[in-house]
Design a protein around this nucleic acid. Structure first.
Length: 418
RNA sequence: GUGGGCGUAGCUCAAUUGGUUAGAGCACAAGAUUGUGGAUCUUGGGGUCGCGGGUUCAACUCCCGUCGCCCACCCCA
């Protein structure tokens, strides 16, 4: 409060104590993506404004009112990325990645920026973790959905529900749009003013409306008659059922980004407040072409990092207990190179095994060390003084069980394997 | 962008309907405690009461503005 400067609205600092959870989820996500054949990609936060206008679409809320855009000193129009799919597409096309491989599986983790009014589960700088499957066949719809589903479970989310819809191919989508436009045009006087605006810009978005008076009109929209679910979509839902992935078909599910076609989906979770979508995605077969690349079919999804974290914790208070059990506190009892080196080297060996190292700089007595270890939330302590080091040993203490053992530093990892 | 609620210590909150030097718990630091921890006790550091202006002999308290936070709408992850 006494600070002369304040951060911008909706842009948070992620502090020690909280960051460990981020790292934990991130590590799990990376492992899961690797197991699915995905490689990480990182792209710049700033992209040409036109890239997002072309991909996400003029009529979308993101483009027409939520982007952080400005001109740099060279009068270039730049925008802080509001999502990742367009950036990945730009990078793949620009770097010619599809000339070296027929198809690609890419994942990303990073900050996104949208100039919205902050509220629960919505920040101006927020983070997404997501993936794109580029130029594989239609079976990738299933892969993408199975991947999010598995990943959410793997990161500790217990309950969530998957909704999906079929927007159809370009042709049928056009037909549906005109048919729906005709229908809503007739019912125009029963719709709210926002819906009338949507009727002009993008009819499908009317289905997003939550105003009570519009509901009867929306309910009766004869979507099924204009756009029966495609054969591929039926195959997809059957396969999901086979694999025990529960889902609900929701014909009113429409995404707010214009590049989607075909299968789209959204995952909602409890414990999030009004913004309860934790992940979303779908098929976008025309994007690469629209951006000047070859025509390649794609599908992808992204997960809201912050929302995932709050949902995980809301559903299970002990979700991040494992972080504590993987913490090792360093307790050197002497301020001399021999002792410090043994302790540090041993700890680094454990770090490679996935443990986190905690230590407090300075020289302390053993009792002070143990007190600090508690405060830092460590499960184990590595204790060594001149006595142990001279005998080539080191003490490993389990703070929870109050047990300890003297071992040789080289055998430290074996001591944690069982 | 629109609406509602809220800004006092790092955190959670007090301050007797305007009145001396703004308090407590938690947290933090030191000691009791020089190789075995979570407790307890003692002591200590911390505040331009979000910021600016106004009313008043006197403002944390009343008025206006402003900034920020929270929640919701819109929409999205």
């Amino acid at each position: 409060m006494a600070s002369k400067f304040q951060g911008f609205p909706g842009m948070d600092d992620i502090l020690p104590g909280e960051i460990e959870k981020w790292q934990w989820v991130e590590e799990r996500a990376r492992a899961f993506f690797e197991a699915g054949g995905f490689k990480e990609i990182r792209t710049p936060i700033l992209e040409p404004t036109e890239l997002f206008v072309r991909s996400i679409g003029q009529s979308s809320d993101i483009v027409h009112k939520e982007m952080f855009s400005f001109k740099d000193r060279g009068e270039r129009d730049m925008t802080m990325r509001p999502e990742m799919t367009a950036s990945v597409a730009r990078a793949v096309i620009e770097r010619g990645l599809l000339t070296q491989a027929k198809s690609l599986r890419l994942y990303y983790v990073g900050p996104m920026f949208r100039a919205e009014r902050p509220q629960a589960g919505r920040k101006r700088q927020f983070h997404q973790i997501g993936a794109e499957i580029i130029n594989e066949n239609e079976a990738s719809d299933f892969d993408a959905i199975a991947l999010v589903h598995g990943l959410l479970h793997y990161t500790g989310l217990k309950e969530f529900s998957l909704n999906l819809n079929d927007l159809g191919d370009e042709e049928s989508r056009k037909k549906v749009k005109t048919a729906l436009a005709d229908y809503f045009e007739k019912e125009k006087n029963r719709l709210c003013k926002d819906c009338r605006w949507r009727l002009e810009k993008n009819v499908l978005r009317i289905f997003d409306c939550k105003i009570a008076e519009c509901q009867p009109v929306i309910e009766k929209a004869p979507w099924e008659q204009f756009a029966p679910l495609g054969a591929n979509f039926r195959k997809l839902t059957a396969k999901l059922a086979d694999y025990g992935i529960p889902c609900k078909v929701n014909r009113r599910l429409v995404r707010g980004l214009d590049y989607y076609n075909g299968v789209v989906f959204e995952i909602t979770a409890s414990g999030l407040g009004a913004q309860n979508a934790v992940a979303g995605g779908g098929r976008y077969d025309n994007l690469y072409q629209d951006l000047g690349g070859a025509a390649v079919p794609c599908t992808g999804f992204s997960i809201g990092f912050e929302r995932l974290l709050t949902a995980i914790q809301a559903q299970d208070e002990k979700a991040f207990e494992e972080i504590r059990t993987r913490r090792v506190y360093l307790a050197p009892l002497e301020d001399c190179a021999a002792v410090l080196n043994v302790v540090r080297e041993t700890a680094l060996r454990l770090r490679e095994k996935g443990f986190r190292i905690e230590m407090s700089p300075g020289v302390f007595s053993l009792s002070q060390h143990l007190k600090k270890a508690d405060k830092l939330g460590a499960r184990y302590a590595l204790i060594a003084g001149l006595d142990e080091v001279s005998r080539g040993k080191l003490v490993v203490k389990d703070l929870a069980k109050r047990e300890q053992a003297e071992i040789e530093p080289e055998k430290i990892t074996a001591c944690f394997e069982q």
